[in-house]
Amino acid sequence: MTELYSERGASGWPLVWGPLFAVLGLLSELIIGDRPHTLMWIVTGLGLLWLTAVWVYARRRFLAVRVTSTHLTQGREHLKIADIASLPDEEAKPGTRVLGGGLSVPRKYAEVPVRLKDGTRVLAWASDAEAFRDALRTAVKDCTP
Rank of each mutant, 00 (worst) to 15 (best):
A58N: 14
H78E: 12
V23N: 04
D134N: 15
P88R: 15
Y5V: 01
E29S: 09
T120F: 00
T96P: 05
G25V: 07
E7N: 12
V23A: 15
L48A: 09
T96Y: 09
A58E: 13
T96G: 08
T2D: 15
G45K: 06
V23Q: 02
P36L: 07
D142R: 14
P94E: 14
T138Q: 10
R133Q: 08
G25W: 06
I81R: 00
E77N: 13
E130N: 04
G75Y: 04
E90Y: 05
R59L: 15
S104T: 05
V43T: 04
A124V: 00
R59G: 09
V140E: 10
A53C: 09
D134Y: 11
G100F: 00
P113T: 10
R60H: 11
A58I: 15
R76C: 05
I84N: 01
L48N: 14
R137A: 11
H37Q: 07
S28K: 10
L26T: 05
G25N: 13
H71I: 13
S11P: 12
R60M: 01
W50R: 14
V16Q: 06
P94H: 07
L4F: 08
V43Q: 06
G25T: 09
A110Q: 06
L26W: 07
L39E: 07
S127T: 05
A64T: 15
K80T: 11
R133N: 04
E111R: 12
G95A: 07
E3H: 01
H71R: 12
L99G: 03
D118C: 00
H78C: 00
R61T: 09
V67W: 01
R97T: 11
D128A: 13
R137Y: 02
A110F: 10
S69T: 11
D34N: 14
G18N: 12
S69Q: 12
F132P: 02
F21W: 02
A85T: 00
A124G: 08
G25D: 12
G95S: 01
A92W: 01
G119Y: 10
R107G: 15
V23H: 06
K108T: 11
G45Q: 04
T44Q: 03
L20Y: 09
A126T: 08
V112C: 05
H37T: 10
K108W: 15
L123F: 01
W125P: 00
T120W: 07
D89Y: 06
D128R: 10
R76P: 02
G25Q: 09
P145H: 14
V140T: 06
R133I: 06
V122A: 01
E77K: 13
E90N: 10
R137G: 05
V23L: 14
L27R: 03
I81G: 09
S127H: 13
E3V: 08
L79S: 10
R8F: 11
V112P: 02
A10H: 12
R35N: 14
F132I: 02
